[in-house]
């Protein structure tokens, strides 16, 4: 099978045919600890801004 595993769930002209699907790099980054530590800091800062704007 030559196709990419990540794209196997998409079925032509079904309800999921028009969406995007992550490739191996995007999926790897989700669980890359170093990258996620950086995202953890950024997301927390963003959330703190939203919290402070809400009080």
């Amino acid at each position: 099978m030559a196709g990419k595993k990540e794209e196997a769930n998409i079925k032509a002209y079904s309800q999921n045919f028009t969406t995007m699907t992550p490739g191996p790099f995007a999926k790897k980054m989700r669980t890359c600890v170093l990258f996620q530590i950086i995202r953890f800091i950024i997301i927390n800062l963003k959330m703190l801004v939203v919290v402070s704007k809400s009080h």
């Binding site: 989700r30 997301i43 959330m47």
Partner: peptide, 14 residues
């Protein structure tokens, strides 16, 4: 600027 979303371990730790 303040409406965002992403999937990953970071959100899970949060």
């Amino acid at each position: 600027d303040y409406t965002f979303g992403e999937i990953g371990l970071a959100g899970h730790w949060i």
